[in-house]
């Protein structure tokens, strides 16, 4: 009896040790560091909540970065989900060349965000970029912009590049989800007089609930961590207009050697993810 009781723990022990070593301990240590002023070497000075208070009260870059992350989450949830769902629904229908189209929309996801950033940076180039050239050719020269150098639109321009790259993965998840919906359900709805739109909202969407949990959770986590595409396309500029929490955390920790403040930013990121995702997952899983 005693042996049986310990057996499951024995099986999870290797995973527990690895998870503790690479996730739990570093996370706890990072949280611990966030209460100190530390330059990376030498003595750590305990400062209590000062790093957090400074971030929220006197650091304008942090607040800009926080706002940008929240904007990115909203953009990701609204546009990446909508576009990928529409593509998945369209590509789940049977038509000639369907596989080719699926590949076309999925291939950008296989590219690194750094490569995507470089490609789109060239497309946005105000002097010889594809986008301004298109406006010229179309006789819409007045719409030409310094896309990445204008603080008000720079973040959205970067997001479009990220959307182009990132839409493939949720599309595949939605495609997989769509295939699990029994055809009989939709057919029954049709027989009962439901149109395509009604069938989509009352049959397809509710049946994709589990897929939505995965898609939204991964998109929100990705939005909180967004870093590389920002670094490549704008470097956080102009005037910090595209700075994100991840890029600011990197600067504080590795450029400025403010390990305490950098750890505080990391902790804020973690807490935000926990506060957004955990209630969502609990809410969607309540029926199960």
């Amino acid at each position: 009896m005693k042996k049986k009781k310990w057996k499951p723990y024995l099986f999870i022990l290797p995973a527990f040790v690895i998870f503790s070593a690479v996730v739990v301990i570093p996370t706890v240590y990072s949280l611990y560091l966030s209460f100190f002023s530390w330059k990376g070497v030498g003595a750590k000075e305990f400062v209590g909540l000062k790093n957090y208070i400074n971030l929220f009260t006197v650091d304008p870059v942090f607040l800009t970065a926080l706002r940008n992350n929240l904007i990115w989450i909203v953009l990701n949830v609204v546009f990446t989900v909508s576009v990928s769902l529409l593509l998945a629904v369209a590509l789940s229908k049977s038509f000639k060349g369907r596989v080719v189209y699926r590949a076309i929309f999925y291939i950008p996801y296989m590219l690194s965000l750094v490569v995507v950033g470089v490609i789109w940076k060239w497309m946005y180039n105000p002097n010889m970029g594809f986008i301004n050239e298109i406006f010229d050719v179309a006789g819409l020269g007045g719409l030409k912009q310094n896309w990445l150098s204008t603080p008000k639109i720079a973040l959205y321009c970067v997001f479009i590049a990220a959307l182009w790259q990132g839409v493939g993965q949720p599309m595949v998840l939605f495609l997989a989800g769509l295939q699990t919906i029994p055809v009989s359900l939709t057919e029954a709805a049709r027989i009962d007089g439901a149109g395509s739109v009604k069938a989509f909202f009352y049959i397809t969407l509710p049946m994709l609930k589990e897929t939505f949990v995965i898609v939204l959770a991964t998109l929100i986590i990705a939005a909180m961590k967004v870093y590389d595409i920002i670094k490549v396309m704008t470097g956080g500029g102009p005037i910090n207009a595209t700075e994100t929490l991840a890029s600011y955390m990197y600067s504080q920790t590795f450029s400025y050697s403010n390990f305490g403040k950098g750890s505080a930013i990391a902790s804020v990121m973690l807490l935000m993810m926990v506060f957004i995702i955990v209630p969502y997952v609990m809410y969607t899983a309540r029926d199960e």
């Binding site: 940076k121 180039n125 105000p126 002097n127 310094n146 896309w147 990445l148 150098s149 720079a154 396309m233 704008t234 470097g235 500029g237 102009p238």
Partner: peptide, 20 residues
């Protein structure tokens, strides 16, 4: 050069090469 604020330093040499 136009849009210099977010131009990559390595890319801007190109404007010298093409005479811009």
């Amino acid at each position: 050069n136009e849009g210099f604020i977010t131009e990559d330093p390595n890319d801007c040499r190109m404007y010298l090469y093409n005479g811009t």
